[in-house]
Computed example of a mutant assay.
Amino acid sequence: MDVTLHLAQQPEADELLGRSPLAALVGMLLDQQVPMEWAFAGPYTIARRMGADDLDAHEIAAYDPEKFAELLSAKPAVHRHPGSMGKRIHQLCQYLVEHYDGDAAAVWKDAGSGTELLCRLKELPGFGAQKAQTFLALLGKQLGVAPKGRREAAGPYGEAGSFRSVADITGPESLAKVRAHKQEMKAAKASGR
């Protein structure tokens, strides 16, 4: 994995997301109840606060959970809910250490199908069906992970040419299109359509 993502809209943070499978997973985990850019800048902020150039699942899993939550709570906080998100990241890293020897990319490296990969993603702490489908779409559309049936497994997020999620953001223009789509969806939901 060594691509340029444009999710944090900060060069250093985006560079980390593009080269670090764990950073990409953590960014996706943080992507709720905060602006996308804030969420995906989180892994870079965490790495810097840990005095590292990357995130390490073994190191985070070995961290005292309360101390790790404090690390995320330092000003400016990594998330609107730094305590609970710190615990989720800690749980994610413990799971990765236990099931994948700490290698986040192992979640998708040998997946035989999109369905299998979706199941693996849904097993990750903090990853429900929608988050798993969105991340599966991001893996396929931008990170070159393309097991058979991945578009179908990703549901609407896997559609080519769509602008519905982080999987479709490659720069400012596509970011604006994704935001417009989300506003349309919100308006439709509010009006009962």
Rank of each mutant, 00 (worst) to 15 (best):
Q130P: 00
P76D: 08
V97Y: 00
L138Q: 11
H79Y: 09
L92C: 06
A105D: 13
K122S: 10
D103I: 09
K75W: 13
A132Q: 01
L118K: 10
S73N: 13
L92K: 01
F135C: 06
A106E: 07
L138F: 14
K87I: 10
V107C: 02
L136R: 03
V97R: 00
G114M: 08
T115C: 10
K109V: 08
D101W: 04
H90K: 04
A77C: 10
R88I: 08
M85I: 04
S84G: 09
V97F: 07
Q94G: 07
G83E: 14
V107T: 05
K131E: 01
A105Q: 11
C119L: 11
V107N: 00
C119T: 11
A129L: 15
A111R: 03
C119S: 13
K109S: 15
A132G: 09
A104T: 02
R80N: 05
Y100E: 06
G102H: 09
Q130Y: 11
K75Y: 14
D110I: 03
P76N: 01
L121M: 08
K131M: 14
F135M: 10
T115G: 15
C119M: 12
E123P: 00
A132P: 03
L71H: 00
P125T: 07
E123G: 06
L124C: 04
M85W: 06
C93M: 03
C119Y: 15
L71S: 05
P76F: 02
R88F: 04
R120K: 13
R80V: 12
G86D: 02
A137R: 02
Q130T: 12
R88D: 05
K87M: 13
G114C: 04
V78C: 08
S113V: 09
Y100I: 01
Q133V: 05
A104P: 02
R88A: 10
A77K: 11
R120W: 07
P76G: 09
P125H: 04
E116K: 09
L96Q: 01
A111C: 09
Q91R: 14
K109P: 09
A74R: 14
H79T: 05
Q94P: 06
M85G: 00
F127L: 09
L121V: 00
D103A: 11
E98W: 01
A111M: 08
Q91C: 06
R80Q: 07
L92W: 01
D101N: 12
